[in-house]
Computed example of a mutant assay.
Amino acid sequence: MSDPLLDPQFFRNPYATYGRLRSEAPVQKVPTGSNGHVSYIVTGYAEARAAFTDPRLSKDTARFFAGRPSRRNLHPAVSQNMLASDPPQHTRLRGVVGPVFTPGPVARLRPYIATVVDDLLSTWEPGEEVDLVDRLAIPLPVTVICELLGVPAADRALVADWSHDLFAAGQPERVDTASHELAVYMTDLTTSKRTEPGYLLHDLGRRADYGELTETEAVSLAVLLVVAGHETTTNFIGNALLALIQHPDSLTALRGRPELITDALDELLRFDSPLGIATFRYSTEELTLGGTRIPAGVPVLIAPGAANRDPTQFDHPDRLDLTRKAAPHLAFGHGIHRCLGAPLARAEAEITLRALLTRFPDIRLAVPDEELEWRQTRLMRGLTSLPVLV
């Protein structure tokens, strides 16, 4: 049996695969890759929510792969970052950068975000065909997170390319190469920013000088922030706008009452989650989840994209309903590893959608739905391009 998560049709529409797997069992064994390895995938909502907080599911990848033969060559700053750790290390590292992304600091960023959005949209001409991913969904979050970190404007497109390559499904050499290029770049930049206060990279470098972080930890946090700081938001903005265009009644409702956008974000996140499958976890001991026995020492894939379409939690889950009042979605994860950048992602998406619907009320697709291209990654769910007429 082949890996169902690497099928080309899965990248275009993962929900058919998720639905089939969930109907068979909310937790089950599936082949992963082409080397005979297997993992357990969690597609049910209740099971995914429980798995996110189960201490028997570890994120310590270094411990999992210790002593195992591997042909992979990921840079340690990528393979051993905060997401790949458990408490107390995870708690310590999250405490270093977490406060930057709480609602208060994010609220103070809103005027800057609005300015970036306005600058990007000001280059669009009414009636023009625009690739919304290339000219808005990528540069907005890249600009914001790189400004916070201190990445020079001239390097931001290159940093974004490396970040995207880290999620290339079925292309391990491309992923490994990108991990080294990005890590080496961020190592050099963290060193140079030690003399430039006001940037996150300055703070990380100085913490390493004071012994609060190791050099590897400082760089790994820098890499993680630049990747996590824009990947989710890029996909969120593209997916949300596509969903609205494909549901004209919802688009009309928000256009007429843009104050509803804030509440609509959760349904847009649930409907087409920018995170299809959460990052690596494995079982440290045998456990039973959703009626399925999971042996010790195997990878466990939690699928928020599937859980957010679970009909046992959401009535008519394949329908976009901006008035929906239901269980909280899992698009940002759950528990101690919940995406720390969620407040920033929400702010960027809200400001973007509000500006788009105000300035370009007649926005529509420039190509048929079937010609849209999706990223070839099972972790992230996002478009490679979104041609629209404005």
Rank of each mutant, 00 (worst) to 15 (best):
L182A: 05
D369Q: 08
S58F: 02
P26T: 05
H247K: 03
I237Q: 01
A349C: 11
V159P: 11
N239I: 10
L158W: 02
L383G: 01
V159S: 06
N239D: 12
P311V: 14
E348S: 09
L289W: 11
A347V: 09
T43H: 06
I277K: 13
G36A: 08
A349S: 06
R135T: 00
S220T: 05
V300W: 09
D60A: 10
N13C: 04
I145H: 01
V116K: 01
N35L: 15
R364K: 12
R378T: 06
V175D: 08
L389Q: 04
P14K: 02
L356P: 04
W124I: 03
Y185E: 08
L136C: 10
T53V: 15
T61S: 00
R338N: 01
T102W: 00
G67I: 10
P126Q: 07
A178N: 11
R72N: 10
T284K: 03
R156C: 13
A331H: 04
M380P: 00
L57G: 06
A183H: 05
H329R: 06
L132G: 06
V226D: 14
A46W: 01
T191C: 14
L83F: 15
P55W: 09
R68W: 08
A107I: 09
H230D: 10
R257D: 15
P139T: 03
G205W: 03
A347Q: 03
E212I: 07
L242P: 01
Y282L: 14
D369T: 10
T187M: 02
V42I: 13
S283W: 07
G382I: 12
R63D: 14
V175T: 09
A160C: 12
S70H: 01
A16H: 11
V175F: 08
L225I: 14
L221P: 13
S273M: 12
S122A: 07
D249A: 15
V390D: 02
S273N: 08
T233W: 13
F280A: 11
P343I: 11
T123H: 07
F64E: 07
Y40V: 04
D263I: 06
T377R: 11
Q28P: 04
W124S: 00
P126I: 09
P69C: 09
R346E: 05
N73E: 10
A228N: 09
R293Q: 13
L389S: 02
N73K: 01
G297V: 01
D272A: 12
P8T: 09
D54Q: 03
T232F: 09
N235Y: 14
R12W: 03
F280Q: 14
R375A: 07
A303H: 15
T262S: 15
R92N: 04
P31K: 03
L241P: 06
K325F: 03
K29R: 15
S70K: 00
H75D: 15
E125T: 13
V38A: 04
A178M: 06
Q80A: 15
R20M: 02
S2V: 08
H90T: 05
R56N: 02
R255L: 04
E350N: 12
F332C: 07
L140V: 00
R22M: 03
R71C: 02
T214Y: 04
S34I: 05
V184R: 13
V223I: 05
T377F: 11
S39K: 00
P368D: 12
A303S: 14
S122C: 00
L121R: 05
D131C: 11
A48I: 13
L356W: 05
R270D: 08
A264V: 09
P141Y: 13
R63T: 12
I245F: 07
L379Y: 08
T191A: 15
Y40P: 00
P69W: 12
